[in-house]
Design a protein around this nucleic acid. Structure first.
Lengths: 338, 338
DNA sequence: TTGTAAGCGTTATCAA
DNA sequence: TTGATAACGCTTACAA
């Protein structure tokens, strides 16, 4: 049958009243009589009326849609963050448009442009590895569309950002390593232009300092986070003499590669090497030989808080929103009983 | 500065021509002079004009947005399917709205309703475990919004559906088991009202038949696919005497639980038990003791084909689209060298 | 080749 | 308490 959906006009006609009365009645406007409201709602129900959101969006110049851009849906850190974000968005009657930049700046720009022409009311973003220039995001801000970063933000860029307190987490990891007798503690970091990499480094550095262990530059590596790069840095570290006996790793997905590399290429050394990553992926619970521990982050809560921040900026555009940096604590999560 | 975005009206005013001329010029309409087009486009560029999509959507009664509903973003099978779907959608200039039913029928209904009032042009869906009633989806169809299923479809429901050829896959798995000397081959299936469960079963049955192995009902279990249910059925199977020496599993996420359960609760029997699941999750490559094999599905291609089917229904509503069942081959993927 | 004007569904302002 | 009407930005049939 493919009937055209009913409009308020249809309701008005059916009741011989005006569209404006219908509109008000449906919105429980105070100066519409109770009986009229009843009748309007009854007819709306009967005609299976559902408001045409495209008309409302057009009329109100507001889409009640938020964008979220993440590197990939295959990383559970981000999908969990999406879920937290969706929760607060849904509660505030907003829809969520999800985009994946796939670590490509060009794709990210396209997404921002698509989202902008779809008139999103605000954007939450974890930038791509390649994103070294914030022009596309500044443009959004200029157009009055608030932008909040999460997880990744370049050092020195003034945007609000919600992330993990990786600094204290790193220091705690070092504490644990030291308490277990490690002296040669390597650190594989992520891209150095991100604040979250710098903070990890600072925590690592200060952790060592506290235990009077000198910083050894040879033990510090930076990975691109792709598998070949991950393998490379592990090889470099393992060819040092003496090789490290412990490694702090930028994130658990990196840890997976590190474990594979060690198992395949350094099988004799592997059993003695202890690892700590960031993320505390549940899948490690399925491993027979899990890593020592992981710094459990709170992606769901990060998504929630970032969403709250964003909604706040949207709903109170008149206030001046100074860029805020929020960081949520990590907890040391042991995969093995110690 | 937060300037209002420029409209075609602004362009028209700037050039002292009519809005319709501007509109046509921007769309390269044939009966607009080349010089006019030039001038219009130049001004559009200068004013940083970008069409107001909400206006277009409203006017055209089309949103160029497709919905996709999946159980959860945490299952890589579905996120990869989303990626395939997005590829064809993007190529056809459609946006994609992603929703997670979280295995809840109620949530699924809400999502469908939200998507409908957002005037999606079509929907791709992998229904929730609870979905035993297609009313909400029939309603969409009635409203002229095509619906395509993927991965999961109740037996006897007439909707188009794209899924894996699980029948032949199951038979192949049984072949492999038999060739490795197994006789007691258990099968843990998913919800029995899905076609994809029935087909797995039929492949398993016919596989055994081919090798003259009698079907043993005790060796067939159905799991709810949540962890506690998964553990339960493994325990039941392992308490049989003789216990099975091989297991065919509904999917790899179920296999993870099976492996954990066997390792923890049946450590002596575990090493002799061989497992085959569906999915071929890449994460198994990180396991020291991976399962025997997995029936590799093609979620990306499933997303693509389902998207193509859906777009076809949208772009040619006049044709009559009989429900189609498409199934894509699985390949046996070995995790261990045999 | 260009312009005029209607109309999409809704909300909001003002008048009755 | 209710109604008439303009407006949002765009497309398009038709007129000039």
């Amino acid at each position: 049958m493919t009937n055209k959906p009913a409009t308020i006009k249809d309701i008005a006609k059916a009741l011989n009243i005006s569209v404006s009365t219908v509109s008000k009645a449906l919105h429980d406007h105070p100066n519409i009589g109770a009986i009229t409201k009843e009748r309007v709602k009854a007819v709306a129900e009967k005609l299976n009326y559902s408001p045409n959101i495209t008309a409302i969006q057009f009329k109100q110049q507001k889409t009640f849609t938020l964008g979220i851009i993440i590197p990939t849906l295959l990383d559970h850190f981000y999908t969990i963050a999406v879920n937290g974000f969706e929760k607060v968005a849904t509660a505030a009657k907003y829809n969520v448009l999800i985009g994946q930049n796939q670590e490509s700046l060009q794709r990210e720009k396209e997404l921002v442009s698509i989202m902008q022409s779809n008139r999103i009311d605000g954007l939450l973003i974890a930038i791509s590895k390649e994103t070294n220039n914030m022009e596309h995001l500044r443009k959004l801000e200029m157009a009055g569309i608030p932008v909040v970063f999460f997880a990744r933000k370049p050092i020195n860029e003034t945007f609000s950002c919600v992330s993990s307190d990786v600094y204290h987490a790193a220091a705690n990891a070092v504490d644990l390593f030291v308490s277990r007798g490690h002296k040669k503690i390597a650190f594989i970091n992520g891209p150095s232009h991100w604040a979250t990499s710098r903070d990890r480094f600072l925590g690592y550095r200060d952790g060592l300092l506290k235990h009077n262990i000198a910083l050894d530059k040879q033990l510090i590596e930076e990975s691109d986070l792709d598998t070949s790069s991950n393998y490379q840095v592990v090889r470099r570290l393992m060819h040092l003499s003496p090789a490290p006996t412990a490694m702090l790793l930028f994130k658990d997905y990196l840890m997976l590669d590190v474990m594979s590399c060690l198992r395949k290429e350094f099988p004799t050394e592997y059993p003695a090497i202890e690892l700590i990553g960031y993320g505390a992926l549940p899948l490690f619970s399925h491993f027979e030989r899990p890593p020592l521990a992981s710094l459990k982050e709170q992606p769901y809560e990060i998504g929630e808080q970032a969403g709250t921040l964003l909604l706040n900026m949207i709903q109170h555009p008149e206030r001046d929103h100074k860029p805020q940096l929020i960081s949520l604590p990590c907890t040391l999560h042991y995969f093995k009983e110690l």
